[in-house]
Design a protein around this nucleic acid. Structure first.
Lengths: 147, 147
DNA sequence: TTGAAAATATTGAATATTCAAGAATTGAAG
DNA sequence: CTTCAATTCTTGAATATTCAATATTTTCAA
């Protein structure tokens, strides 16, 4: 009798794969909506984090928007060119740069938020209220347990 | 009284964000393990899919391993150089290329599988058996409902 | 049968990301 | 104080990904 080994389980049953697949699909849908405003998902995240009006350092921001440090720097360069955000050197620690959202950024962020909400509603409809909140809960707890 | 609008919900409560965050974290952990063999996660996926011994067309494979078509082509080029896989033209439809895993690929795949299983066990320990299977179930159903 | 449209895979140029190194500032130990 | 390590951000080169175009083969309608 063969040892019942986990090594042969199909890839579609691995948690890492299911997460990647679900993320890819949901992200693709969101991307599609946001493309109406010509903005990549990551820029929406940045605007949303900055829309509390406070200054956020690059390091803080990189964590929050799930981007590597150098990637964020270059994306921020573009957003500064588009006058969506601006840099201010942190007076308390001059190694740091504080990012702020501009008025133009705020206007854009509002539009993007409503596109993103559209998507969430669409998911709620096809996937169900209960499943959605349960899934969110489980994801949060997975993230917590991974730190 | 202000309209209770969803537009202001913090990004950390969006399903798309939670999925991205969880995926990033779990993927990072898996990447770390697989790096012991110097293999990116996508190559493990490819080997795993091919390890049924059957030929898989590039299109089929691209879907299965969550890669765009041109990206897959170039990754397969590398894996062919490393003699992990090989191409055969499909005799029944000469537009297609069938991919097969080599013996060397099989040996590597076994090692990678065990590294991946390590990770799943580690998740099971810290996150719990019940949560894990419930999360998998919900992810599968989300993916289903998105098609 | 022929010719146009669809399907499949690859290529090359443009773009984006990453890795490793660098510059500037702060912290802290001696 | 001064110097050396740590922190923060950016840069440049190397690498990887993507988009649009191409080549090949098949399908199917006329």
């Amino acid at each position: 009798m063969a040892k019942p080994s986990k090594e042969n389980t199909p890839i579609t049953e691995h948690l890492a794969y299911l997460l990647a697949q679900a993320n890819r699909e949901i992200n693709r849908q969101l991307e599609l909506r946001l493309s109406k405003e010509g903005v990549p998902v990551e820029q929406w995240r940045i605007l949303k984090v900055l829309s509390d009006g406070n200054g956020h350092s690059m390091g803080e921001l990189a964590d929050a928007v799930l981007l590597n440090h150098p990637t964020l720097t270059k994306m921020i360069d573009r957003m500064v060119s588009d006058t969506l955000v601006y840099r201010v050197q942190d007076p308390n620690d001059r190694r740091k740069v504080l990012m702020f959202i501009s008025d133009r950024g705020k206007v854009l962020c509002k539009k993007l938020n409503s596109l993103a909400v559209d998507q969430e509603e669409h998911i709620l409809e096809s996937y169900g209220d209960k499943s959605t909140s349960e899934l969110k809960r489980l994801l949060e707890s997975l993230i917590d347990s991974s730190n």
